[in-house]
Simulated assay, not measured.
Amino acid sequence: MTEPPVQTVLQKPPGYRDPDAPVQKPLPKPPQRQSIPPSMYPKNKNKNNKKKTRRSCCRTCCCCFCIFILVLILLISAAGAIFYLWFDPKIPVFHFRSFQVPQFNVTIKSDGTYLDTKTVARVEVKNPNQKLGLYYGDMHVVVKVGEGEDETELGRSTVLAFSQGKRNVTSLNVETEGKKLQVADGVGPRLKSGFKNRGLAVKVDVRTRVGVKVEGWKIGMVGVNVRCGDTSLKGLQGGEMPKCAINLLKWCLVIHH
């Protein structure tokens, strides 16, 4: 018998690729992790808890402070209402009692018109309160005559501070003096004529502060402006006693014994 022919297997050279073999796709690369900025990192839970605790404390403090202020306002309002109902406080009453002009000289010179004056005004101050005393700061007094454009200041004076008891009346004599007061050329003759016929209008302005006395304690201080007059010399000499108008200004709270 004849032997079958021996088949020799040829070895493939290095780098040989079988064209009939299936092509394998390369595996995809794993995705790269993107770097996150430090500000985007999640915050620590402990820090969040601390901040929440601080906010809660701040809110609690604010609420307590607001409640305290509200209670304080209510207490002050209640105390003021009780004080008003019990003592029934009244503002002082000013009256213009008299006005004298010992000197009133108008001098016309080449360089202008001048006025020399002396005045004595009597102002009555009444405390109408039955349960309260009053005390006053220094009174700054200004005396004027004339109306409108002719209104002219004759002088200034200061009355020292004083006190009043309950239902008390105090009379104040205010003396002023003015020397060589320059006035407009047209005003001088009109003032001189008005003084002669006693038709000259007289005004006294008083600026002071008034407080309340309760059992030796001085409580509160309020600034006031007082205007007395707008009355002619003839009316004052005839016995007319006009009441003064009083305007309250800013409060200045002071409590001392």
Rank of each mutant, 00 (worst) to 15 (best):
T2K: 06
Q7V: 08
L10S: 06
K12A: 15
P13S: 12
P14W: 10
D18C: 08
D18P: 01
P22N: 07
K25N: 03
K25R: 09
P28F: 11
P31K: 10
P31L: 15
P37L: 02
P37W: 03
P37G: 03
P38G: 00
K47L: 13
N49Y: 03
K50M: 12
T53W: 05
T53R: 09
R55Y: 13
C57H: 09
T60R: 11
T60G: 11
C61I: 13
F65I: 14
F65G: 02
C66A: 12
V71R: 01
L74I: 15
S77N: 10
A79M: 03
A79T: 05
A81N: 09
F83S: 08
F83W: 02
Y84E: 05
Y84A: 07
D88Q: 13
P89T: 07
K90G: 01
I91H: 12
V93P: 01
V93G: 01
H95L: 13
H95R: 11
S98E: 15
Q100K: 13
P102F: 13
P102K: 12
N105F: 02
N105S: 09
V106C: 03
T107H: 09
I108S: 09
D116L: 02
K118R: 14
K118F: 06
V123I: 15
E124Y: 01
V125D: 07
V125A: 08
P128T: 11
L132W: 02
L134F: 01
Y135E: 05
Y135H: 14
T152A: 06
E153C: 03
L154F: 06
S157Q: 10
V159K: 11
F162Y: 05
Q164S: 04
Q164I: 00
G165E: 14
G165P: 00
K166N: 13
N168T: 08
L172F: 08
V174C: 10
E177M: 07
G178F: 07
K179S: 12
K179P: 00
K179A: 03
P189S: 05
R190A: 06
R190H: 06
K192T: 04
F195T: 08
K196I: 05
K196M: 09
G199Q: 15
G211W: 11
V212C: 05
V214C: 00
E215Q: 05
K218P: 01
K218N: 13
K218D: 06
M221G: 11
V222A: 07
V224H: 05
V224G: 04
N225D: 15
V226F: 00
G229N: 06
T231F: 08
K234M: 03
G235C: 02
G238K: 11
G238S: 14
G238Y: 02
M241A: 04
P242C: 13
L249T: 07
L249A: 05
L253F: 14
